[in-house]
Amino acid sequence: MIPASFDYHRASTLQEAFTFAQEYGEDAKYLAGGHSLIPMMKLRFSEPAHIIDISRIQGLKYIKEEDGILKIGALTTEADLEFSDLCHDKYPILVDVSKLIGDPSVRNKATVGGNLAHGDAANDHPAVMLALKANIVAEGPNGTHNIPVDEFFKGFFETALEQHDILIEIQIPATKAGNGGAYNKIERKVGDYATSGVAVNLTVDTSDTVVDIGIGLTNVNPVPMRVSRAEEALKGNKLTQELIEKAGKIAGEDCSPTADLRGSEDYKRSITKELTIRTINKAWERAKASL
């Protein structure tokens, strides 16, 4: 549990971070909240020679609505989300997910940006951002670029971020009447990776017809996964328990979980189905309440 030797560099601006990153190249890793990278370093699975601490860069910690978009700064902590009035009032799915990450001391340090940039399908925010159809804003030495969340996750710990890129902002279409989201996960104990997690963001009209729907899954697929077939099944249709059941069934079928200490493939498919049904219902309840 003692990491290999490394040099520590603290960047106070993005520009400074890029300069470090360009200087040290492949031997460098960005560090934000440290709750994914540091355990790997302590186990010596990861031995970067240079750590570029971006956690103190000013101006990357905010939750605000602007021009019909909810903007979350990458250094926003899980605790910031958990206790945000804006999230409580309008984006309860973000409160759901932050509350289910780690424990309070983890949430005080861990950042939303880090959770996404780590590119781990077991992390919780990827599924949520898939459901919310978020847009990821990255900045590198050559300027900023937008990455739709569907193009963001590439593989194990791999994202569309280019070598020196820093994820700076997450953009989510602002909520409107008839919109409701929810996240839930089954975990072996508090702080565990999800055995399965389901994020749903749903918009219905007054006749309960699905206007828009996003469903994302956590840790039941090698990469964070959108359940497109279930979304298609729901979109444009009037919500019924039969239809929700069908969406759940699709989620269980289309995911691709791996057996591990948490349980067998069958078990994970089964609970993914059930969790999808329950989470759609929870999102529906919230969506109706917003009408």
Binding site: F153, K154, E158, D260
Partner: peptide, 22 residues
């Protein structure tokens, strides 16, 4: 990553022939 992302459809394409047992 590409190889990994490719297996998103593992359940559909290779389920019949592959049995991963743990």
């Amino acid at each position: 990553g590409g190889a990994v992302a490719g297996t998103v459809v593992k359940s559909i394409t290779s389920k019949l022939t592959s049995g991963v047992k743990n």
